[in-house]
Nucleic acid binder design. Structure first.
Lengths: 192, 192, 192, 192
DNA sequence: CATGAATGAGTGTTCATTCAT
DNA sequence: AATGAATGAACACTCATTCAT
């Protein structure tokens, strides 16, 4: 039920997964324990439900990435993707945080995270290869590093409740990433 | 006591912070509960003690970073720093993991992490500025992104217990970062 | 409602009284919780309804026992009674089982069992006395023992879902009981 | 710990297995919940511990039965066995009651009961055969019936907290059983 | 008559922490 | 300094029962 998903979101955000009591969630949703267990098998199941929503968005996102070439249009595509990805963090940030907290104990929930994450990373990597990107660095490392950056960057951004000026920050971020992969070729081209 | 620190390290690594029982730690250290509380005020206190060790290394590391310029020697310095930083993850990885897990609940332990982390980030940023790096991107964003990348990248690396071929991986990573900031100028120079 | 009585029988049989959930019964009857409480005041009330059916049969059975004398016709009468009694176990076995399980907690349901049981025992005892049976043993003890034997014997028989060859088993059982009371006089007479 | 075993005995006796709360037991033992779970894995485990004690006594009892022949010395042996068996009921009665109550749900605890019971029954049967007893009834049925009688008889006796005059009752019981199997031959012999 | 979503009191169990020895 | 038996507050979860529709 929506009330419980919302309440779960709020309480997980405020207290984290472990510190969140089912009682807190139930109270926040103005329902009873019984109702909670009518819709969710366990506290962990509620987290899973929340996480699945987020993972689905990521999957859709990955499907929508176009070729990311070394030229300015590639930069734009990357910027678009980054913006959309950051947006999921803005909306699911607290859940992602709780998700991480729970990973240590719950293997299934951990796998869900790794799986959906790897999916985006490899899609992005192939979109760069499709564009014939001859990045002079090890591709596995690079993509892993890129995703790592995005992941953690977004995480910190959201967990500190920063609402950055999108244009400036996103631009810088996209520029750093694009440069990292293509060695500033775009700008050079432009400059030239 | 050393036995307990070691045991804590092992148990936190195996089970994570929440799933780790004081009993597990005590048994691993071949001591008693009484002894545990003789040296540590709480389970959380043990984690803190372990985390402080790691935070100190980071502080020392930050103090030892030289100027990171846009030329090849800057790249080398960056590479050195990256290598050292990754090494702390190799040694403290499990603790950092537990540390994160506990952050949701314990504000003090959370602050310790943010503080020591910010310290490295700002030091590195200033080392780049010292070197007169005119990176055409927002500096706050860039450094934050860089540290985010390192942090998460190392984390994943260690948590998957990967033992990568240092030279290849480290080189690629350093190259991506250096390029990201300086736009491939180094290589261009070399090429030129 | 019949559907619920049937479902209760089945579910109590499968899971026992405590493990049986009202939800199980309701689902087995293809009705709703609301309907359940429309016909029965509680889960226990359903058991009581089922038990009463069984207790009534026992009462009727007791009323139909004729004189049980020491001769062969007494043996036949005893055998007839035993067969009928065993038959109620075959039909109500699972209920009797649940009934017992519930006795520990519910005094009223317990009393129903004791009452209907004592009724049969004393009737049978008087039928033997009517027949002028001079059993050289304490009559209270003997009848109690007899009923105990039948009760438990039937119970085990049914709960193991044994479908014994009636003639052989019933004959042996009746013979043991008859002998126990009359000291093998019947056979002696026949033999003579 | 003894305190908990004793308390468990008392509380199971008073309330039955399901109605007994761990809290009741703990309070009766003047300890804490923590201590309970230090010595027993669960409420059921406490019952098992109690039941095992009883089952062991039965096993020992079975080992000590001598030949039960058709003559008066056989009767005496049977009487001795019956007395000892009844005594275990006097001491473990409440546990046996709880044990039964739990059987519906816990297969392991159920098997323990069936196993130890079957052991006595078959031992007794063989002791009668050893004695060359030519009982003109089906032996399986007879022994089963005998044990059933004892089991239930004792159970009722104890659960009603009757403290019968041993000599009269035990004598009658033993006489009924012995006669049931040997057809009153003993008395006949004596009479002759 | 029938429904089934909602309830919440009640229960077994865990585990960080203490303290008498 | 070291022990480990004892503690009890705290929590997730269950399920018989109700009542608005």
């Amino acid at each position: 039920m929506g009330k419980l998903l919302d309440a779960g979101m709020r309480v997980f955000a405020d207290r984290g997964y472990h510190a969140a009591r089912v009682d807190d969630i139930v109270r926040a949703a103005r329902t009873s324990h019984g109702t909670f267990y009518l819709y969710f098998a366990s506290k962990e199941d509620l987290l899973r439900a929340l996480a699945v929503e987020c993972a689905q968005e990521w999957t859709e996102l990955a499907g929508a990435v176009g070729p990311v070439g070394r030229d300015e249009s590639g930069f734009e595509e990357l910027r678009r993707f980054l913006g959309a990805f950051l947006d999921t963090y803005r909306r699911y940030g607290p859940i992602i945080r709780a998700w991480r907290e729970a990973q240590g104990e719950d293997r299934e929930i951990g796998r869900l995270g790794v799986r959906s994450f790897t999916a985006i990373a490899s899609t992005l990597a192939s979109r760069m290869d499709d564009a014939g990107a001859p990045h002079a660095v090890d591709s596995t490392t690079s993509v892993a590093a890129l995703m790592a950056m995005l992941e953690r960057f977004n995480y910190v951004l959201v967990s500190r409740r920063l609402d950055p000026d999108d244009d400036v920050m996103l631009d810088s971020l996209a520029r750093v990433v694009h440069r990292g992969f293509f060695g500033g070729a775009a700008e050079a081209t432009i400059a030239g």
